[in-house]
C-alpha cells in the first residue's frame, strides 16, 4: 500500500459567527481537491462531536465560556498544529465588544428587563455554558501555532494556507492576500 495517509483535519467554532467556516466553504470546487487530501474529524460539516488525534485543528471564534475551554483544550491535545482563524479567534473580535460592559449589566439586560421565555429570571441550568467575565483570544488559553487574520480570511487565503501546510511547506501568504482595504 503506497497510498499516502490522508491528513486529518478538525475545525470548530467557539464564540464566532461561522463566517470563517463559510469562507472555508467558499473555496467552491476546490473542496473536492481538499477532500482528496484530507479527512475531516470533528467539524460542523461532519457533525462529529468529539475530536480524535488529528494533524491540523482550525479554531474559529474567541473564548467566551467554560465549554469553549473544554473544546479548545481537546483540540490542543489532539491536533499537532493548531490554527486560530479570523479576528474573533485572534483577538476576541466582535463578541469581545461585550468586554466593556459589566457582565451583570449584560445579564440584567437580557434576562431581567425584557423577560425571557420563563419570565424574569436568570437561567442557572448546569447544561448551559457558563460565561467568562470577558471574551478572551484563543492564544491566551492554549498555545497557537498559526494565526490567519481577517474577518473572515478570504477563501483564497485559507486555500493557500492549507495547501502549503498539507504539502509540507511553511505557509506563506503574500501581502495582497493580507490587505483588506
Amino acid at each position: 500500500m503506497n497510498e499516502k495517509r490522508k491528513i486529518r483535519l478538525a475545525t470548530c467554532s467557539l464564540a464566532g459567527c461561522f463566517g470563517c467556516h463559510m469562507s472555508l466553504l467558499d473555496i467552491d470546487e476546490k473542496l473536492f481537491d481538499l477532500l482528496g487530501m484530507v479527512e475531516f474529524d470533528r467539524t460542523p460539516f461532519t457533525d462529529i462531536k468529539r475530536c480524535g488525534p488529528c494533524d491540523i485543528g482550525i479554531v474559529e471564534g474567541g473564548v467566551s465560556n467554560a465549554e469553549n475551554v473544554h473544546v479548545l483544550k481537546e483540540f490542543r491535545k489532539n491536533c499537532k498544529v493548531l490554527v486560530a482563524i479570523g479576528a474573533c479567534a485572534i483577538t476576541g473580535g466582535v463578541p469581545a465588544l461585550r468586554n466593556n460592559i459589566d457582565l451583570w449589566d449584560c445579564f440584567q439586560e437580557v434576562y431581567l428587563y425584557e423577560g425571557g421565555l420563563e419570565g424574569n429570571q436568570i437561567p442557572n441550568d448546569p447544561e448551559l455554558p457558563l460565561p467568562f467575565d470577558k471574551v478572551y483570544p484563543v492564544y491566551e488559553v492554549v498555545k497557537v501555532d498559526y494565526f490567519l487574520p481577517g474577518c473572515p480570511p478570504s477563501a483564497d487565503m485559507i486555500w493557500k494556507f492549507l495547501t502549503d501546510l498539507i504539502e509540507g511547506r511553511e505557509p506563506k501568504l503574500d501581502y495582497e492576500m493580507l490587505r483588506y482595504d
Binding site: 467554560a66 457582565l103 436568570i122 442557572n124 448546569p126 457558563l130 460565561p131 467568562f132 467575565d133
Partner: peptide
C-alpha cells in the same frame, strides 16, 4: 474568570 457569572447565576 468564571467567578462573576457563578455569583450572578448562583451556580
Amino acid at each position: 474568570a468564571l467567578e462573576t457569572a457563578r455569583n450572578i447565576t448562583g451556580r
